[in-house]
């Protein structure tokens, strides 16, 4: 650990009593959201293979604990912004999944009326400010959102998600310097899923302990296990506290793994082995959470089964809603370009 990194999470902390203070209902809800993200995306992948969804589809499967743990640690009035692998963040924030599936289908009932697609999920009402598809370009935006919170003397924070590969963009470094210089209440949360498309972190970053890379700007780094929803929750809670109370930015690296390819057309056997993927799946965040709920007697097997059934039903409704929704009218092409 560097001077700038603090170890916040140990795996033996997974069953800490204090998580129980979140309340049984909340804990089951977090589990349910993780399952919803996964099943939603499995349905999206299926629809994609049937050509009902076009363009790029970047799946979050494997990384669900990150979005869910992080959002659970925020207040509703805190801001969140992310990159193009954004399905999990929108669902975790509470956006109606029907609208999201409709957006994937390019329908007029979609969250962006069919203009945005998979990479551009927005829910301004819930302070979910996108869904941004140019790698690293959302990092200055998140910094600006935090600037507003400070300018208006609000005690709100902006949680700015990015991938490991985005750390090599200039926009990231410019933004971090500004956030440190101006002491902005922003948490940069790097979802290190080990690969930027097909390039492994150690082939892209000269320093592979990514949380250390804030040290050039005097920004404290933290690292957390991204497959453990509580580890993410703890780390974001602490980073958000520092942002809120001390108006200090944090660079939080969460180590996670995406099971699927970079996008639907990614032949991931070129750059990683099946064995590696299978090994990572042994740390599956949903399975871990399930064990926690059952082992801690927080939920019964029946309740777990009910979650699965409920989610299955919701996802089926999402697909049906998306399929039955109307195409955007041609004249809507010119809508929403200027105010």
């Amino acid at each position: 650990m560097s001077d700038y990194a603090i170890e916040t999470n140990k795996s033996d902390g997974f069953l800490k009593e204090e998580y129980l203070s979140l309340g049984r209902a909340r804990l089951v809800e977090m589990y349910r959201t993780m399952v919803l993200i996964r099943r939603f995306e499995e349905a999206a992948a299926k629809a994609y293979s049937m050509q009902k969804i076009g363009g790029f589809l970047h799946l979050y499967i494997g990384q669900e604990a990150v979005a869910v743990g992080a959002v659970a640690a925020l207040r509703d009035d805190d801001y969140l912004i992310t990159a193009y692998r954004d399905h999990g963040h929108a669902i975790a924030r509470g956006t109606d999944p029907k609208k999201l599936m409709a957006e994937l289908f390019g329908k007029y009932t979609g969250s962006s009326k069919g203009k945005g697609g998979s990479m551009h999920f927005f829910d301004a009402q819930r302070n979910m400010l996108g869904g941004h598809a140019i790698v690293g370009a959302q990092v200055p935006l998140g910094t600006g959102i935090a600037f507003k919170a400070k300018y208006r003397k609000e005690d709100r924070v902006c949680l700015t998600f990015l991938g490991d590969a985005a750390m090599n963009q200039g926009a990231f470094h410019e933004a971090l310097n500004l956030a440190a210089l101006w002491k902005l209440p922003v948490v940069y949360i790097v979802e290190n899923n080990m690969y930027g498309m097909g390039t492994a972190v150690d082939r892209a970053s000269a320093v592979t302990e990514l949380h250390k890379r804030g040290c050039a700007y005097g920004i404290e780094g933290m690292v957390a296990d991204g497959m453990n929803v509580f580890a993410v929750y703890d780390a974001v809670k602490e980073a958000a506290r520092k942002a809120r109370e001390l108006s200090l930015p944090t660079l939080l690296e969460v180590r996670t793994y995406r099971y699927r390819g970079h996008s639907m057309s990614d032949p991931d056997s070129i750059y990683r082995t099946k064995q590696e993927v299978e090994e990572e799946k042994q740390r599956d965040p949903i399975e871990q959470m399930k064990k926690f709920l059952l082992g801690g007697k927080i939920a019964t097997q029946k309740e777990i089964d009910t979650v699965e059934e409920d989610v299955k039903k919701i996802v089926a409704e999402c697909v049906e809603f998306a399929e039955k929704s109307p195409e955007p009218p041609l004249e809507s092409m010119y809508d929403d370009i200027y105010v």
């Binding site: 801001y79 912004i81 400010l129 370009a137 990092v139 200055p140 935006l141 998140g142 910094t143 600006g144 959102i145 935090a146 600037f147 507003k148 919170a149 300018y151 208006r152 200039g170 926009a171 410019e174 933004a175 310097n177 500004l178 210089l181 101006w182």
Partner: peptide, 28 residues
């Protein structure tokens, strides 16, 4: 100095900060 702000030579950074601030209601 809260409203008239010197930025370092980081056009991408401070323009992006402006866009972000505008998204949530300021007028940079």
């Amino acid at each position: 100095e809260d409203r008239v702000i010197d930025a370092p030579i980081s056009e991408s950074g401070f323009t992006g900060v402006g866009v972000g601030a505008a998204m949530v209601g300021l007028r940079p």
